[in-house]
Design a protein around this nucleic acid. Structure first.
Length: 435
RNA sequence: GGGGGGAUACCAAAGUGGACAACUGGGACAGACUGUAAAUCUGUUGUCUUCGGACUUCGCAGGUUCGAAUCCUGCUCCCCCCA
């Protein structure tokens, strides 16, 4: 039997995920039968980052409630650059680069969307499409005749994204970026014709592009399609969610380790935690409400942040990675380091930590704590190392070393060939014993 | 082209023959506190050390002196004023 539809509209409402909507009867429209919905992603990098999570989770929610999501990767539009929300003309990327990005992004999406089974929706599994496939087939002349003819320029120049750039004489806007909207609009028409797609999702900055698509679909195909935008996920201090001083938080574990990923969410400000729980998790309403309460009464426990971090880390990196992150977190925040049976496990927990090599013979004789700290590059000189020990800032296996005559020996091994050293709160280093 | 001022540690900035490994502020690093936040407080901040000290450092190279960041000579670089 075919999967049941659940009321996605009601869910999005309590999650406050609906910012704008082209129709006020969207709720019943979505309950009438399974629909095909799409959202677009720019392949500007070889990995998705936290900024992509919100729309991706939107598609996931739609799939889970019985609809069919299409993730559109903008191989064509990404090569042009969307002027929305951008103050400057973008640099163009090479087509090969974009092609490579599309391949790895598809893999990441497969973790969140079901591209293979139709158990979620009667319409079938989720789809991943690349607009380069159809847009590149157009000749310039054909595009102008078929698409351009249907779009009044006076409407285009009144769109927010274009208007901002036109009004600023310093940056301006190229004809190429100006045309971006047409391409995205045509995507909707194409998806509507090919897959019966009837709803486009996007961030609130996409409203202009979304409505352009709806207009175009009516003019070109006489089709009635819909659009919906989500609020943008911003932090209470006004900065972008998902950015740190050291750059974006990526979904690719090679670019942002699961531990860093977890820690990012673990450290979300209280003011932003409620929003994140609603926008970025699938926790039920009762639990979110409960966490809101806990946050108000016992902020120190950071229950919301922990739940958020665990939920997202498990979703993106899987339960096994989450378990290691849990272990690492325990250790990094004070726990003593017990014996690890294998170097492998210890290595995983301390994946971020730099390591240095130490000859086995030296360890057998015992290495002074100062030498060990220098060897592990935790201090620049022995003098500095001695000071750190005197200040109580030196640790072996998370146990404070209180005397600078302390010798590090084979008894300090935390796994068959490794010793964990630490200076201060968070500076860890591994000593690998080699022959 | 002429005249004047300057160069000190990660940064800023004192120090004008010995008490100077060099005041002070910032930064950084530890510790306490704390919610893995912020603020605050304390300590440290050239190298080595057998913890007694030893050695190297105030733009660069020489010199004077028992002794130089400090005085002299030359060089390099920077700033300002006049033309």
């Amino acid at each position: 039997m075919s999967p049941q539809l659940t009321d996605i509209h009601a869910e999005l409402q309590w999650r406050q995920l609906i910012y704008q909507c082209t129709s006020d009867r969207l709720g019943s429209w979505l309950m009438a039968r399974p629909r095909t919905v799409y959202a677009g992603f720019d392949p500007t990098s070889d990995s998705l980052h936290v900024g992509h999570l919100l729309p991706l989770l939107m598609l996931r929610r739609f799939q889970k409630s019985g609809h069919r999501p299409i993730a559109l990767v903008g191989g064509a539009t990404g090569s042009i650059g969307d002027p929305s929300g951008k103050s400057q003309e973008r640099n163009l990327q090479s087509l090969e680069q974009i092609e490579a990005n599309v391949v790895s992004i598809r893999q990441q999406m497969a973790g969140l969307l079901d591209f293979s089974s139709d158990r979620h929706s009667a319409l079938g599994p989720a789809l991943l499409v690349n607009n380069h496939d159809w847009i590149s087939r157009f000749s310039y002349l054909d595009f102008l005749r078929d698409v351009g003819k249907n779009v009044p320029v006076n409407v285009m120049i009144n769109k927010e994204s274009v208007k901002n750039r036109l009004e600023n004489p310093d940056v301006g806007i190229s004809y190429t970026e100006f045309s971006y909207m047409l391409l995205q609009a045509y995507d909707f028409v194409h998806l509507n014709r090919t897959f019966g797609c009837e709803l486009q999702l996007g961030g609130s900055d996409q409203w202009g592009n979304v409505t352009a698509g709806i207009d175009l679909a009516r003019r070109m195909a006489g089709a009635e399609v819909f659009g919906m935008t989500c609020p943008l996920l911003t932090k209470s201090d006004g900065t972008k969610m998902g950015k740190t001083e050291s750059g974006a938080i990526w979904l690719d574990p090679k670019k942002t380790s699961p531990y860093q990923f977890y820690q990012y969410w673990r450290n979300v400000a209280d003011e932003d935690a409620g929003k994140c729980l609603r926008f970025l998790t699938e926790l039920p309403q009762e639990e979110v409400d409960h966490l809101d309460q806990c946050r108000a009464t016992e902020p120190a426990k950071a229950a919301s942040q922990i739940r958020l971090a665990e939920w997202l880390t498990e979703l993106i990196h899987g339960p096994a990675a989450m378990e290691l992150v849990r272990q690492a977190t325990e250790i990094f925040f004070g726990g003593e380091i017990g014996k690890f049976a294998s170097d492998e496990d210890l290595n995983q927990v301390f994946a971020e930590v730099p390591s240095s090599e130490l000859v086995a013979a030296r360890l057998a004789d015992g290495v002074s704590i100062a030498d060990a700290l220098v060897e592990a590059k935790l201090t620049k000189s022995k003098g500095e190392a001695r000071r750190v020990v005197a200040e109580g800032g030196a640790y072996v296996n998370n146990r404070r070393v209180d005397s600078d005559t302390h010798l590090v020996t084979t008894a300090d091994l935390s796994s068959p060939t490794m010793i964990v050293l630490r200076r201060g709160k968070k500076n860890y280093a591994l000593l690998r014993i080699v022959d």
